[in-house]
Amino acid sequence: MPTREAGEVFGPRMTLFADVLSIGLATAVACLPLVTVPAALSTACAVLRGAGRDQPVTAGRYVALLRRRSRAGDLAAGGIALAGLLLLAADLALARAGLPGAPLFAVAAAVIGGCAVLVALRACGRPESLTDWRAAVRGAGRDAVADVGGSALVLLAVATAALCAWMLLPLAFLAPGPLALALTAVDVRRSPVVLPQ
């Protein structure tokens, strides 16, 4: 059982909790331009994944890693995600306008949109998202179907983050940290465990 180091007030679990909140705040700030959301969330997952390899989980490491992510693929992923969300919002607005078949169309659009969000979030949690979004999305699509329990956990994490942000608006700036932790945990639990030789 881990013990407190000299000068440590709360112990390692509370330290990880504080680190997750600081990563969440840094991620929320990085997400403000909207097209940077996938890269920011993917970077948060990468920083939190490093905790298992004894790498520091700090906002400074997050910013340093995010700085290296300003490539065309990351901005394209953000643009596609933003366009998809705008299209879904427009489709749901048209369904509310009273068009024939609107209720069935609204359900279909919500299911398709939910599946797309699920795959996108699982892609952000994969390590491949740091270098290759296509490979991350392909792997996330396979995982979304093969790992139904993990997909349910991701949807539960999104619902929890949305509920916290709805209940108390300042929590919206901290929600990306626990969401990234949940995405990372869902991905890591599928990874094979390498035992020491």
Results as ranks from 00 to 15, higher is better:
104 L>M: 15
152 A>F: 12
128 E>R: 02
151 S>C: 05
153 L>M: 12
156 L>C: 11
119 V>F: 04
156 L>R: 11
135 A>C: 07
116 A>Y: 05
129 S>Y: 00
151 S>Q: 05
95 A>N: 05
134 R>E: 02
120 A>P: 00
143 D>S: 14
154 V>M: 06
149 G>W: 07
116 A>F: 06
136 A>W: 01
113 G>W: 02
98 G>L: 06
114 G>H: 09
156 L>W: 14
107 V>Y: 11
135 A>W: 04
120 A>C: 07
137 V>C: 00
144 A>P: 07
102 A>M: 13
135 A>L: 13
103 P>W: 11
122 R>G: 01
132 D>W: 04
116 A>V: 08
105 F>G: 10
93 A>K: 12
108 A>Q: 11
130 L>Q: 11
159 A>I: 09
98 G>T: 05
154 V>G: 03
149 G>H: 10
158 V>Q: 02
111 V>S: 06
156 L>V: 13
155 L>T: 04
94 L>K: 12
130 L>D: 11
121 L>K: 01
144 A>L: 11
128 E>T: 03
93 A>M: 14
96 R>P: 04
98 G>D: 08
159 A>F: 14
124 C>D: 03
108 A>R: 11
150 G>S: 06
123 A>R: 01
156 L>T: 14
134 R>D: 04
154 V>R: 00
152 A>H: 08
158 V>I: 08
159 A>P: 10
133 W>D: 01
143 D>G: 14
123 A>N: 04
135 A>K: 03
136 A>C: 03
118 L>N: 06
119 V>H: 01
154 V>H: 02
127 P>A: 06
157 A>F: 00
127 P>L: 00
130 L>R: 12
157 A>N: 00
113 G>K: 05
99 L>T: 14
148 V>L: 15
134 R>I: 05
155 L>Q: 04
159 A>N: 12
111 V>C: 11
156 L>H: 10
98 G>M: 08
100 P>D: 11
113 G>M: 06
149 G>C: 10
99 L>N: 09
156 L>E: 10
95 A>L: 11
93 A>S: 15
125 G>H: 02
120 A>T: 05
113 G>L: 07
132 D>K: 02
105 F>R: 14
131 T>E: 09
112 I>A: 15
112 I>H: 11
97 A>R: 14
140 A>L: 08
158 V>M: 08
153 L>Q: 12
103 P>Y: 12
120 A>L: 07
100 P>N: 10
139 G>Y: 01
126 R>E: 09
104 L>I: 12
157 A>S: 05
114 G>D: 08
134 R>N: 06
154 V>W: 03
129 S>N: 04
102 A>W: 08
146 A>K: 04
125 G>P: 00
116 A>P: 04
110 A>R: 09
126 R>N: 08
107 V>A: 15
142 R>I: 07
109 A>M: 13
109 A>K: 05
115 C>Y: 13
142 R>H: 15
149 G>D: 08
153 L>R: 14
129 S>H: 01
132 D>H: 11
109 A>D: 10
116 A>I: 02
132 D>Q: 05
101 G>C: 10
110 A>W: 07
97 A>H: 10
111 V>T: 09
159 A>S: 15
124 C>A: 15
113 G>C: 07
109 A>W: 07
107 V>D: 09
133 W>G: 01
133 W>T: 01
157 A>C: 02
155 L>N: 04
149 G>Y: 08
